[in-house]
Amino acid sequence: MRQAGLTAWKTVEWLLLAAVGLIFVFPFLWMFLTAFKTMPEVYQFPPTWWPESWQFQNFEIAWSSGPFLTYVWNSFLVAAGILVLQLLTGVPAAYAFARYRFRGREALFGLTLIALMIPAQVIFLPVYVEMSHWGLVNTLWALILPYGASAFGIFLLRQSFMQVPDEVIEAARLDNASEWKIMWTIMVPMAKPVLVTFGLFSFIYHWNDYFWPLIMTNSNEVRTLPIGISMLKAAEGGKLWNVIMAGNMILVLPILAIFFFAQRHIISAFVYQSK
């Protein structure tokens, strides 16, 4: 009797799990299915589930409706450029915060934490004015430089540098290794898991970013993929949902692929801030 009740509850729970999973996964599946349908099929009501014939040319139409190779390349350059800069500025800062005692350390680290909390939307206007004074509006520099230092990265790396045992550094110093060398050849390799975590976080964040490139760019040569994708809507008269969804797949698939292979890293990267 009790056994039957338990199995019944198990079944209900499985159904509930499936339902919750579907609420979050099915929209992506719908994006995928729509991307392969013909226009008449898209405008069929009630809709069909499975495409009647798989239209691969939707991807070609989306891809050739603008300079998408440029968009992809720009997105990559910006996300990678930001990450490199953030590491170049972040590693020494984190090392100093973690390993040296110096006057003003707490205050300077406090400033870093404030930078962690205030989002770009609050200060985009004055930064835009700065950029236009320097003639950098509508260049890739305007997309990269404002993110040249990451408070989150410094925070993560500092945490990880603090955990390296003193003996390791002492030993290196006895070998007459310079501080600079200790930092890059001993500390950084030991912080590898954190670097992967932070790298994924930063790259995904800037690959996805729409707001900043929207503000800072106004011509195709410097636009990034999210901007190009959002322009499909206008370029195609607003309603070619199969082409629009195909375009969005180009933006979404790389991220979903990374998520598939590095799920644990990504989840810890994004959830870390809470700790």
Binding site: F24, P27, F28, S230, V252, F259, F270
Partner: peptide
């Protein structure tokens, strides 16, 4: 993982979808 997945997708795609 399924519930989390929209969080790492660009808002552009989420909005258009």
């Amino acid at each position: 993982a399924a519930v989390f997945s929209p969080h790492i997708i660009s808002l552009v795609s989420v909005a258009m979808l």
